[in-house]
Amino acid sequence: MDIFLQQLINGLTVGSLYALVALGYTMVYGVMKLINFAHGDLVALSAFAGLTIYVQIFGEAKSSLFLVLGVFIITALLIAVVGVLLERLAYRPLRMAPRLSAVVSALGASLVIQNAIMLIWGPNMKIFPSNLFPSTIWTVHNVVFTFTQVMIMGVSAVLMIGLYIFINKTKMGTAIRATAIDQDAAKLMGINVNRVIMIIFIIGSSLGAVAGLFIGINYRGITFDMGWMYGLNAFVAAIMGGIGNIPGAMFGGILLGLFNAMISGYISSEWAQTFTFVLLIVILIFRPTGILGETIAEKV
């Protein structure tokens, strides 16, 4: 039983990270019907920027949670700005172009960001100091969880609940949902679509930034090409949950993390990735729009 609970904690930790990143994919897709392939690289960029901010500006001598919170806020703001710039430069000029052009532009943007990281920070692995969070470890009935894991799960949950409320209860959230359903109609109703898209990129990028920092703090080693691995997993999570659907991305991320942990733990770690994609295929066969995705009748 304690092994099962431990796998649950393992899965929830990595699942929360996937969910945070998946939200960025799904929100952009929901509104713009565009897969933002550069999103994973924004996550990597955030880990590198966060490390530099922490070491250079604050100095790594002593650490307090207050200071780390500062690093999180500054990095999230920075990545939000990069996200908005990305939309302005790479996607907005192509908004009326065929969908394929925008996808190619997204792939290009991904390469640009990845190579920029390599040129600025170098090709070597960079390593986070271990003192950002206290190294407290709790053991309850043989089940171990660390302070960092609790922070990852807690902060992700708070952010996701906050996002859910924002989307469903506020005026801006309503505007986002309206734009997602029909951009032209939303425009006719007086919604500033450009502003909605900007907000989407700000939220998606800053959630990705939080995930990037958590990855750096929890796994320590960061490389310029790590965005690809986390991006791919999060993208799979978004599709599983139903791309374009916000609770779907959260659910998909957690499901993917748990599924991976359980397969690795009870069947075989060698086959975990294979089983993950089998699960994806099975889900798509039975629910082509993902688990929480809605079937919307095509307008004729």
Binding site: I3, Q6, Q7, N10, G11, T13, V14, I215, Y219, G221, T223, M226, M229, N260, A261, M262, I263, S264, G265, Y266, S268, S269, E270, A272, Q273
Partner: peptide, 20 residues
């Protein structure tokens, strides 16, 4: 005797299995 996928960073699942 098992394998991990290099670069995946999260090895807690297989380690938990080993712990048992």
């Amino acid at each position: 005797s098992g394998k991990i996928k290099s670069g995946t960073q999260n090895f807690t699942a297989v380690l938990t299995k080993i712990k048992s």
